[in-house]
Design a binder for these strands. Structure first.
Lengths: 130, 130
DNA sequence: CTTGACCTTCCGGTGACTGGAAACCCTATC
DNA sequence: GATAGGGTTTCCAGTCACCGGAAGGTCAAG
């Protein structure tokens, strides 16, 4: 398979696939004309990567996950620990965004949104006071 | 005031303040020795920027917000629209993270986390099936 | 006069790509 | 055989909002 086919099947842009090769996540073969030739195992890895990335794992996490996947003697505890740490980060991020949302939502609601200049959003930003 | 004082008062790193000057958000004066000299208005702007950034506005949003703040003939509707658009983005982001969290949380819970290799987290990543 | 705390600019790196340029390859049609 | 249109290659630069560090200038205290 050439990169275009793999891109379609894995649901990843060709650019991204080349990038993943650059950073050593995959190592497709090469045809005589220089084109990358992807094995099923490459496609499989790319799909794995796509799903891991969709869950928000960093590239370095993905590298570790792939290694764990390959290591048939891994302890599931190692995978779980990585996933739990990532989950914690996500929850922190959610909490942070919710806090922003709450503040911002109040500000937006308190703003008349008409053609007068008075604006509690700007006042708040300017003074830190409501 | 020199940059160190302003940094303390505005709660921003000196590096960030220099960066904000670079991209034209502030234009402090200069002393004969080349040191930046900050007026109260600069400090005020920096505090404004710090709060806007803490609410997650992009730098370009901040630029617009500062301009609106300076424009005493603005319509509050313009500010509100910007803030509402940003709020929408935050809510999208929260929803996306919550979806990740839900999936990931299920996976983590279903993983024994012992020293055996069987791991539903890896299985899911590998196949996309639970 | 030296020490140490400031300050300056400049360069490079971050994460995970994305866009674009210039060039090569392959297949199909005229 | 020429050409057109797709696919592919590499490489370089840009994204966002900074941060770290180097090399050097400035200032106040002891």
């Amino acid at each position: 398979m050439n990169i275009g086919d793999v891109a379609k099947r894995a649901g990843l842009p060709a650019k991204t696939i080349r990038y993943y090769e650059d950073i050593g996540l995959i190592t497709p073969l090469r045809d005589d004309n220089g084109y990358r030739r992807f094995r099923d195992s490459d496609l499989h890895k790319l799909a794995f990567l796509g799903r891991a990335r969709a869950l928000g794992f960093t590239i370095e996490d993905c590298r570790t996950l792939l290694a764990l996947y390959d290591d048939k003697t891994r302890a599931s505890a190692d995978v779980k620990e990585l996933a739990q740490a990532h989950l914690n980060k996500i929850e922190d991020k959610i909490a942070q965004l919710q806090s922003m949302r709450d503040t911002l939502s109040e500000l937006v609601q308190s703003c008349a949104g008409d053609n007068r200049p008075d604006c509690p959003i700007l006042s708040d930003l300017a003074t830190g006071q409501h």
